[in-house]
C-alpha cells in the first residue's frame, strides 16, 4: 500500500508533528519504502490465528484499593514547562483540542 503526500500530511496532524515541505517529501518516500516492505505480511493467511498483544500469558493482576501518598505539588509541577505553583499552564483550550 503506497502512501500519498496528502495522507502523510494528515497523519502528521494526527501525530501532532509539524513537517516542512522537504520533510514531508522525505517522510512520504521513507514511509512508502517501509510500508512496501511490510506488505510482505499479506502473503500469510492469518484468518484463524489469534492475535498476540502480550508476550506473556498472564491475567488478573490487581492492586488493593489502598491510598498511597501522592507527590508534593511542587514535585509534580517541577518538570512542567509552565506552571503557576498550583496548575500546569498551556495555551488556551477553548473549543476543541
Amino acid at each position: 500500500m503506497a502512501i500519498s503526500r496528502e495522507e502523510v500530511k494528515k497523519v502528521s496532524l494526527l501525530a501532532r508533528l509539524q513537517l516542512s515541505d522537504a520533510e514531508l517529501e522525505t517522510m512520504t518516500a521513507q514511509l512508502g519504502d517501509i510500508l512496501g516492505y511490510v506488505e510482505l505480511l499479506s502473503e500469510l493467511d492469518t484468518d484463524k490465528v489469534e492475535p498476540m498483544a502480550h508476550a506473556l500469558d498472564v491475567s488478573n493482576v490487581f492492586r488493593d484499593d489502598k491510598v498511597r501518598a501522592s507527590l508534593d505539588r511542587g514535585e509534580a509541577l517541577a518538570n512542567a514547562p509552565k506552571h503557576d505553583d498550583e496548575c500546569y499552564r498551556v495555551p488556551a483550550v477553548l473549543g476543541d483540542g
Partner: peptide
C-alpha cells in the same frame, strides 16, 4: 466510590487543592 484511583494509589477525594493528588 473507591478510595484510590483506577491505576495508582492516589486518593479520589473531591475538593483538594489543585494538583495535590497526583503521582508519576
Amino acid at each position: 466510590s473507591t478510595a484510590s484511583k483506577l491505576f495508582c494509589g492516589c486518593s479520589t477525594a473531591f475538593g483538594s487543592p489543585a494538583n495535590t493528588q497526583t503521582c508519576p
